[in-house]
Design a protein around this nucleic acid. Sequence first.
DNA 1: TCTTGTTGTAATCTTATTGATTACAGCTAT
DNA 2: ATAGCTGTAATCAATAAGATTACAACAAGA
Lengths: 149, 149
Amino acid sequence: MKITSRFTVAVHTLLVIYLFGGERKTTSEFIAESVQVNPVVIRRTLLSLKAAGMIEVKAGSGGASIVKDLKDITLYDVYRAVDSVEGELFHFHENPNPACPVGKNIHSLLDGHLSDAQRAMENELKKTTLADLSGELAEKIRAQAPAQA
Amino acid sequence: MKITSRFTVAVHTLLVIYLFGGERKTTSEFIAESVQVNPVVIRRTLLSLKAAGMIEVKAGSGGASIVKDLKDITLYDVYRAVDSVEGELFHFHENPNPACPVGKNIHSLLDGHLSDAQRAMENELKKTTLADLSGELAEKIRAQAPAQA
DNA sequence: TCTTGTTGTAATCTTATTGATTACAGCTAT
DNA sequence: ATAGCTGTAATCAATAAGATTACAACAAGA
Protein backbone atom coordinates (compact mmCIF):
# COMPACT_ATOMS: atom_id res chain seq x y z
CA MET A 1 0.00 0.00 0.00
CA LYS A 2 1.21 3.45 -0.79
CA ILE A 3 1.16 6.84 0.87
CA THR A 4 -1.72 8.91 -0.47
CA SER A 5 -1.15 11.20 -3.42
CA ARG A 6 -2.50 14.05 -1.32
CA PHE A 7 1.11 14.63 -0.43
CA THR A 8 2.50 15.09 -3.93
CA VAL A 9 -0.63 17.01 -4.88
CA ALA A 10 0.00 19.42 -2.01
CA VAL A 11 3.61 19.98 -2.99
CA HIS A 12 2.53 20.53 -6.58
CA THR A 13 -0.11 22.97 -5.40
CA LEU A 14 2.34 25.04 -3.38
CA LEU A 15 4.74 25.26 -6.28
CA VAL A 16 2.00 26.41 -8.64
CA ILE A 17 0.89 29.10 -6.20
CA TYR A 18 4.47 30.19 -5.77
CA LEU A 19 5.30 30.24 -9.47
CA PHE A 20 2.11 31.87 -10.76
CA GLY A 21 1.03 33.80 -7.69
CA GLY A 22 2.54 37.01 -8.98
CA GLU A 23 0.99 37.09 -12.40
CA ARG A 24 -2.49 35.67 -12.01
CA LYS A 25 -5.15 34.54 -9.57
CA THR A 26 -4.38 30.96 -8.53
CA THR A 27 -7.84 29.49 -8.14
CA SER A 28 -8.60 25.89 -7.30
CA GLU A 29 -9.61 25.40 -10.90
CA PHE A 30 -6.35 26.75 -12.29
CA ILE A 31 -4.30 24.59 -9.94
CA ALA A 32 -6.48 21.59 -10.75
CA GLU A 33 -5.60 21.97 -14.41
CA SER A 34 -1.92 21.70 -13.68
CA VAL A 35 -2.26 18.80 -11.25
CA GLN A 36 -4.98 17.17 -13.34
CA VAL A 37 -7.33 16.31 -10.54
CA ASN A 38 -10.79 17.50 -9.62
CA PRO A 39 -10.93 21.09 -8.31
CA VAL A 40 -12.61 19.90 -5.14
CA VAL A 41 -9.54 17.84 -4.37
CA ILE A 42 -7.47 21.02 -4.65
CA ARG A 43 -9.87 22.93 -2.41
CA ARG A 44 -9.48 20.30 0.25
CA THR A 45 -5.72 20.50 -0.15
CA LEU A 46 -5.84 24.27 0.18
CA LEU A 47 -7.84 23.94 3.37
CA SER A 48 -5.17 21.69 4.85
CA LEU A 49 -2.34 23.97 3.81
CA LYS A 50 -4.21 26.95 5.20
CA ALA A 51 -4.81 25.18 8.50
CA ALA A 52 -1.06 24.55 8.63
CA GLY A 53 -0.40 28.26 8.23
CA MET A 54 1.34 27.96 4.89
CA ILE A 55 -1.10 29.79 2.68
CA GLU A 56 -3.99 32.19 2.70
CA VAL A 57 -7.10 31.68 0.61
CA LYS A 58 -9.39 34.49 -0.40
CA ALA A 59 -12.97 33.40 0.14
CA GLY A 60 -15.38 34.77 -2.40
CA SER A 61 -13.02 36.50 -4.75
CA GLY A 62 -10.75 33.49 -4.97
CA GLY A 63 -7.08 32.75 -5.21
CA ALA A 64 -4.41 31.50 -2.81
CA SER A 65 -1.09 32.96 -1.77
CA ILE A 66 1.84 31.74 0.26
CA VAL A 67 2.23 33.40 3.64
CA LYS A 68 5.21 31.51 5.01
CA ASP A 69 8.77 31.63 3.84
CA LEU A 70 9.46 28.67 1.58
CA LYS A 71 12.70 28.15 3.46
CA ASP A 72 10.61 27.34 6.50
CA ILE A 73 8.43 24.72 4.86
CA THR A 74 9.91 21.25 4.59
CA LEU A 75 8.49 18.29 2.73
CA TYR A 76 7.76 16.85 6.14
CA ASP A 77 5.62 19.86 7.02
CA VAL A 78 3.53 19.34 3.90
CA TYR A 79 3.38 15.61 4.54
CA ARG A 80 1.93 16.35 7.97
CA ALA A 81 -0.33 19.13 6.81
CA VAL A 82 -2.30 16.82 4.55
CA ASP A 83 -2.18 13.79 6.86
CA SER A 84 -0.33 11.65 4.36
CA VAL A 85 -0.22 8.87 6.93
CA GLU A 86 -2.68 8.75 9.80
CA GLY A 87 -0.60 7.75 12.76
CA GLU A 88 1.36 4.61 12.10
CA LEU A 89 2.84 3.85 8.72
CA PHE A 90 2.84 0.11 9.28
CA HIS A 91 -0.44 -1.71 9.58
CA PHE A 92 -0.56 -4.34 12.28
CA HIS A 93 -2.79 -7.39 12.18
CA GLU A 94 -5.43 -6.41 14.68
CA ASN A 95 -6.02 -9.29 17.04
CA PRO A 96 -2.97 -11.41 17.73
CA ASN A 97 -3.87 -14.19 20.12
CA PRO A 98 -2.87 -13.19 23.67
CA ALA A 99 -2.94 -16.85 24.69
CA CYS A 100 0.13 -17.46 22.53
CA PRO A 101 3.47 -16.10 23.74
CA VAL A 102 4.18 -14.72 20.30
CA GLY A 103 0.75 -13.18 19.88
CA LYS A 104 0.97 -11.69 23.32
CA ASN A 105 4.30 -9.97 22.66
CA ILE A 106 4.44 -9.28 18.94
CA HIS A 107 3.22 -5.74 19.31
CA SER A 108 5.68 -4.58 21.94
CA LEU A 109 8.36 -6.50 20.10
CA LEU A 110 7.88 -4.70 16.80
CA ASP A 111 6.46 -1.31 17.70
CA GLY A 112 9.78 0.31 18.51
CA HIS A 113 11.48 -0.95 15.39
CA LEU A 114 8.63 0.08 13.14
CA SER A 115 8.45 3.53 14.70
CA ASP A 116 12.17 3.90 14.14
CA ALA A 117 11.74 3.05 10.48
CA GLN A 118 8.89 5.48 10.06
CA ARG A 119 10.82 8.20 11.85
CA ALA A 120 13.83 7.64 9.59
CA MET A 121 11.64 8.23 6.57
CA GLU A 122 10.07 11.32 8.06
CA ASN A 123 13.40 12.77 9.12
CA GLU A 124 14.59 12.42 5.56
CA LEU A 125 11.63 14.50 4.43
CA LYS A 126 12.67 17.21 6.83
CA LYS A 127 15.88 17.72 4.92
CA THR A 128 14.24 19.26 1.86
CA THR A 129 12.54 22.65 1.93
CA LEU A 130 10.11 24.10 -0.56
CA ALA A 131 12.76 26.75 -1.22
CA ASP A 132 15.10 23.98 -2.33
CA LEU A 133 12.44 22.65 -4.67
CA SER A 134 11.50 26.02 -6.14
CA GLY A 135 15.20 26.61 -6.79
CA GLU A 136 15.56 23.28 -8.57
CA LEU A 137 12.39 23.98 -10.47
CA ALA A 138 13.58 27.40 -11.64
CA GLU A 139 16.75 25.78 -12.90
CA LYS A 140 14.88 23.15 -14.84
CA ILE A 141 12.61 25.72 -16.39
CA ARG A 142 15.56 27.82 -17.42
CA ALA A 143 17.24 24.81 -19.01
CA GLN A 144 14.04 24.01 -20.88
CA ALA A 145 13.51 27.54 -22.19
CA PRO A 146 13.62 27.83 -25.96
CA ALA A 147 16.90 29.28 -27.30
CA GLN A 148 16.84 33.06 -27.29
CA ALA A 149 17.98 35.27 -30.15
CA MET B 1 -2.54 4.78 3.71
CA LYS B 2 -0.62 2.16 5.57
CA ILE B 3 1.79 -0.59 4.68
CA THR B 4 -0.02 -3.94 4.46
CA SER B 5 -0.24 -6.13 7.53
CA ARG B 6 1.28 -8.94 5.48
CA PHE B 7 4.56 -7.68 6.85
CA THR B 8 3.76 -7.99 10.55
CA VAL B 9 1.92 -11.22 9.84
CA ALA B 10 5.06 -12.63 8.22
CA VAL B 11 7.28 -11.64 11.13
CA HIS B 12 4.76 -13.15 13.52
CA THR B 13 4.69 -16.31 11.44
CA LEU B 14 8.45 -16.72 11.48
CA LEU B 15 8.59 -16.27 15.24
CA VAL B 16 5.88 -18.87 15.79
CA ILE B 17 7.69 -21.35 13.58
CA TYR B 18 10.91 -20.65 15.41
CA LEU B 19 9.45 -20.87 18.88
CA PHE B 20 7.24 -23.93 18.37
CA GLY B 21 9.08 -25.66 15.56
CA GLY B 22 10.87 -27.99 17.93
CA GLU B 23 7.93 -29.29 19.86
CA ARG B 24 5.07 -29.55 17.39
CA LYS B 25 4.08 -29.39 13.76
CA THR B 26 3.57 -25.74 12.80
CA THR B 27 0.73 -25.96 10.32
CA SER B 28 -0.95 -22.99 8.67
CA GLU B 29 -3.89 -23.57 10.95
CA PHE B 30 -1.81 -23.49 14.11
CA ILE B 31 -0.05 -20.31 13.04
CA ALA B 32 -3.37 -18.78 12.03
CA GLU B 33 -4.63 -19.28 15.56
CA SER B 34 -1.79 -17.24 16.99
CA VAL B 35 -1.97 -14.50 14.39
CA GLN B 36 -5.77 -14.63 14.32
CA VAL B 37 -6.22 -14.51 10.59
CA ASN B 38 -7.55 -16.97 8.05
CA PRO B 39 -5.29 -19.99 7.47
CA VAL B 40 -5.21 -19.23 3.76
CA VAL B 41 -3.58 -15.92 4.55
CA ILE B 42 -0.88 -17.81 6.41
CA ARG B 43 -0.42 -20.25 3.54
CA ARG B 44 0.16 -17.36 1.19
CA THR B 45 2.62 -15.89 3.66
CA LEU B 46 4.42 -19.22 3.89
CA LEU B 47 4.69 -19.35 0.11
CA SER B 48 6.37 -15.94 0.08
CA LEU B 49 8.76 -16.80 2.85
CA LYS B 50 9.58 -20.06 1.13
CA ALA B 51 10.24 -18.29 -2.16
CA ALA B 52 12.62 -16.01 -0.27
CA GLY B 53 14.53 -19.05 0.98
CA MET B 54 13.72 -18.49 4.63
CA ILE B 55 11.60 -21.51 5.34
CA GLU B 56 10.70 -24.93 4.08
CA VAL B 57 7.16 -26.21 3.96
CA LYS B 58 6.31 -29.89 3.94
CA ALA B 59 3.67 -30.46 1.33
CA GLY B 60 1.20 -33.17 2.21
CA SER B 61 2.30 -33.96 5.73
CA GLY B 62 2.33 -30.33 6.72
CA GLY B 63 4.40 -27.99 8.86
CA ALA B 64 7.02 -25.36 8.21
CA SER B 65 10.56 -24.98 9.43
CA ILE B 66 13.18 -22.28 9.24
CA VAL B 67 16.11 -23.05 6.96
CA LYS B 68 18.08 -19.85 7.23
CA ASP B 69 19.96 -18.52 10.19
CA LEU B 70 17.82 -15.96 11.98
CA LYS B 71 20.89 -13.76 12.21
CA ASP B 72 20.78 -13.54 8.42
CA ILE B 73 17.15 -12.46 8.15
CA THR B 74 16.47 -8.79 8.68
CA LEU B 75 13.11 -7.09 8.96
CA TYR B 76 13.86 -5.64 5.56
CA ASP B 77 14.22 -9.12 4.09
CA VAL B 78 10.80 -10.08 5.39
CA TYR B 79 9.37 -6.77 4.22
CA ARG B 80 10.63 -7.55 0.74
CA ALA B 81 9.65 -11.20 0.80
CA VAL B 82 5.98 -10.39 1.21
CA ASP B 83 6.00 -7.32 -1.07
CA SER B 84 4.94 -4.97 1.69
CA VAL B 85 5.25 -2.10 -0.75
CA GLU B 86 5.11 -2.67 -4.48
CA GLY B 87 7.77 -0.38 -5.86
CA GLU B 88 7.35 3.15 -4.68
CA LEU B 89 6.14 3.97 -1.21
CA PHE B 90 4.78 7.36 -2.22
CA HIS B 91 1.85 7.52 -4.56
CA PHE B 92 2.11 10.19 -7.22
CA HIS B 93 -0.88 11.85 -8.84
CA GLU B 94 -0.87 10.17 -12.22
CA ASN B 95 -1.22 12.80 -14.90
CA PRO B 96 0.32 16.15 -14.07
CA ASN B 97 -0.21 18.53 -16.96
CA PRO B 98 2.92 18.64 -19.13
CA ALA B 99 1.80 21.98 -20.55
CA CYS B 100 2.46 23.56 -17.16
CA PRO B 101 6.07 24.07 -16.06
CA VAL B 102 5.24 22.65 -12.65
CA GLY B 103 3.31 19.68 -14.02
CA LYS B 104 6.08 18.98 -16.46
CA ASN B 105 8.78 18.87 -13.79
CA ILE B 106 7.10 17.80 -10.58
CA HIS B 107 8.07 14.18 -11.05
CA SER B 108 11.77 14.66 -11.64
CA LEU B 109 11.74 17.28 -8.91
CA LEU B 110 10.35 14.99 -6.23
CA ASP B 111 11.40 11.51 -7.25
CA GLY B 112 14.87 11.70 -5.80
CA HIS B 113 13.73 13.09 -2.48
CA LEU B 114 10.96 10.57 -2.11
CA SER B 115 13.26 7.69 -2.97
CA ASP B 116 15.69 8.93 -0.37
CA ALA B 117 12.95 8.95 2.24
CA GLN B 118 11.81 5.46 1.33
CA ARG B 119 15.37 4.20 1.38
CA ALA B 120 15.94 5.70 4.83
CA MET B 121 12.97 3.75 6.12
CA GLU B 122 14.10 0.54 4.49
CA ASN B 123 17.66 0.93 5.73
CA GLU B 124 16.32 1.24 9.23
CA LEU B 125 14.53 -2.10 8.79
CA LYS B 126 17.83 -3.66 7.81
CA LYS B 127 19.23 -2.96 11.25
CA THR B 128 17.06 -5.48 13.04
CA THR B 129 17.44 -9.22 12.53
CA LEU B 130 15.00 -11.96 13.40
CA ALA B 131 17.66 -13.20 15.81
CA ASP B 132 17.41 -9.88 17.64
CA LEU B 133 13.66 -10.25 17.84
CA SER B 134 13.70 -13.85 19.01
CA GLY B 135 16.16 -12.82 21.71
CA GLU B 136 13.92 -10.01 22.86
CA LEU B 137 10.97 -12.35 22.73
CA ALA B 138 12.67 -14.99 24.85
CA GLU B 139 13.44 -12.35 27.41
CA LYS B 140 9.86 -11.14 27.54
CA ILE B 141 8.58 -14.66 27.92
CA ARG B 142 11.00 -15.35 30.72
CA ALA B 143 9.91 -12.18 32.51
CA GLN B 144 6.28 -13.20 32.13
CA ALA B 145 6.79 -16.76 33.42
CA PRO B 146 4.91 -17.54 36.61
CA ALA B 147 7.14 -17.57 39.65
CA GLN B 148 8.75 -20.97 40.15
CA ALA B 149 8.93 -22.85 43.44
C1' DT C 1 -27.53 46.16 -5.22
C1' DC C 2 -27.29 42.59 -8.46
C1' DT C 3 -24.35 39.54 -10.81
C1' DT C 4 -20.52 36.62 -11.29
C1' DG C 5 -16.94 33.79 -9.86
C1' DT C 6 -15.02 31.26 -6.13
C1' DT C 7 -14.55 28.94 -1.77
C1' DG C 8 -16.16 25.65 1.94
C1' DT C 9 -18.34 21.48 2.58
C1' DA C 10 -21.51 17.68 2.41
C1' DA C 11 -23.13 13.67 -0.07
C1' DT C 12 -22.70 10.11 -3.31
C1' DC C 13 -20.35 7.15 -6.57
C1' DT C 14 -16.60 4.54 -8.46
C1' DT C 15 -12.58 2.10 -8.22
C1' DA C 16 -8.74 -0.33 -6.13
C1' DT C 17 -6.79 -3.00 -2.63
C1' DT C 18 -7.00 -6.14 1.22
C1' DG C 19 -7.95 -9.69 3.69
C1' DA C 20 -11.80 -13.36 4.53
C1' DT C 21 -13.75 -17.26 2.92
C1' DT C 22 -14.99 -21.31 0.18
C1' DA C 23 -13.56 -24.91 -2.52
C1' DC C 24 -10.84 -28.45 -4.13
C1' DA C 25 -6.96 -30.93 -6.42
C1' DG C 26 -2.64 -33.05 -5.21
C1' DC C 27 0.58 -34.90 -2.06
C1' DT C 28 2.54 -37.54 1.99
C1' DA C 29 2.88 -40.35 5.83
C1' DT C 30 0.57 -43.62 8.49
C1' DA D 1 -6.82 -45.89 1.24
C1' DT D 2 -7.26 -42.60 4.45
C1' DA D 3 -6.67 -38.49 6.89
C1' DG D 4 -4.58 -34.18 7.23
C1' DC D 5 -2.19 -30.56 4.82
C1' DT D 6 -0.60 -27.52 1.30
C1' DG D 7 -1.07 -24.87 -3.12
C1' DT D 8 -4.09 -22.11 -5.50
C1' DA D 9 -8.07 -20.24 -7.76
C1' DA D 10 -12.36 -17.80 -7.31
C1' DT D 11 -15.50 -14.88 -4.84
C1' DC D 12 -16.95 -11.78 -1.42
C1' DA D 13 -16.85 -7.95 1.83
C1' DA D 14 -14.79 -4.08 3.85
C1' DT D 15 -12.07 -0.06 3.56
C1' DA D 16 -10.16 3.96 1.63
C1' DA D 17 -9.30 7.28 -1.91
C1' DG D 18 -10.32 10.19 -5.25
C1' DA D 19 -14.06 11.87 -8.63
C1' DT D 20 -18.03 14.21 -9.08
C1' DT D 21 -22.27 16.79 -8.15
C1' DA D 22 -24.45 20.17 -5.63
C1' DC D 23 -25.09 24.23 -3.25
C1' DA D 24 -24.85 27.81 0.41
C1' DA D 25 -21.94 31.72 1.69
C1' DC D 26 -19.22 35.38 0.34
C1' DA D 27 -16.46 39.08 -1.99
C1' DA D 28 -15.72 42.31 -5.61
C1' DG D 29 -16.96 44.75 -9.52
C1' DA D 30 -20.67 46.34 -12.76
